[in-house]
């Protein structure tokens, strides 16, 4: 192919993505430096970093930041540990393995609003839910999940959806593990744990770090689960940064402050993205 044609074929995707990135990004940065509230359209003008100051001195900011970190951290620990355990359990031939595999990864394909409603209503509802029935049957008082443990409830829902992702990735990686090496280790009398720490874990080190980084990117942006179940409450107990910014824009109509929050969210995601890009760069061959 001649070089000009190559350039022309590449142009659309590059140009469109460039527009898609630059236009909204610069608008967000611009909005974040001006006074811009849809309720008070007459108040305008450049106000420097005041929106940022307003965003981080908001009494909801600090709880939302902590909630975001707790949410992301807990989901990461749960999904990676459970994902490792289950993928090791299923990494052997047995009757019906294909079916078990499909059952294990299915939650990942359920749309987030559906999974949030299923957990909120049919499982966690303190009156008619299944957990309440189980608690009653065991003679315990049913837990008011969304009322008393809102953040924990969100963590459970998100972990249910994302452990299958970890399982899928780890399962795929385990298939490429050197079986002869494992057999040799078994013959040498290496037990399960020593094999796990010396062979399996090093083999999975890369997939684990990739799973962690990708989940961080997605979990910093968790929205639908909170929107459908707790609406960030009670109070701000289950409000994360994404939801806080959504509230600022859609309910307080403060475009300036919401944009300042948006810039903050972008910076936070970029810190993770730098590591992720580096990890991906190692595998991408051109």
């Amino acid at each position: 192919m001649n070089p000009a044609l190559v350039r022309w074929l590449q142009a659309p995707s590059i140009v469109l993505l460039l527009i898609w990135m630059i236009v909204p990004l610069s608008m967000t940065i611009y909005f974040s430096t001006i006074r811009y509230n849809l309720l008070y359209p007459e108040r305008k003008g450049f106000i420097g970093l005041s929106n940022y100051e307003f965003f981080y001195t908001d009494p909801s900011f600090f709880p939302a930041l902590i909630n975001t970190l707790v949410l992301v951290g807990s989901v990461l620990v749960i999904t990676v540990v459970l994902g490792l355990a289950v993928s090791l359990l299923i990494d052997r031939p047995f009757w019906g393995r294909g079916v078990a595999r499909v059952m294990l990864i299915s939650p990942f394909f359920i749309m987030p609003t559906v999974s949030a409603l299923v957990w909120k209503n049919m499982l966690m509802d303190p009156n008619n839910g299944l957990f309440a029935a189980l608690a009653n049957a065991l003679g315990m008082t049913p837990i008011e999940w969304l009322q008393d443990l809102p953040l924990a409830s969100i963590i459970i829902m998100v972990s249910w959806q994302w452990t299958p992702f970890a399982i899928l990735i780890f399962m795929t990686s385990l298939q490429s593990q050197d079986q002869e090496q494992k057999e040799a280790a078994t013959l040498d009398g290496a037990g399960f744990w020593s094999q796990f720490f010396h062979l399996t874990l090093p083999h999975l080190a890369r997939p684990i770090s990739i799973v962690i980084l990708i989940q961080m990117i997605f979990h910093l942006a968790i929205f639908a689960e909170i929107f459908v179940t707790t609406s960030g409450g009670p109070g701000v107990q289950s409000t994360n940064l994404t939801y806080l910014i959504y509230i600022q824009s859609q309910q307080a109509f403060d475009v300036g402050v919401a944009s300042a929050g948006g810039v903050f969210a972008i910076i936070l995601a970029n810190i993770v993205a730098i590591f992720l890009i580096r990890a991906i760069g190692k595998t991408l061959t051109v």
Partner: peptide
């Protein structure tokens, strides 16, 4: 290109 996928949607909520 991949890095643009990592931009949080909420960061560009208002402009979009």
């Amino acid at each position: 290109m991949l890095s643009t996928k990592m931009l949080p949607a909420v960061g560009v909520l208002m402009p979009i």
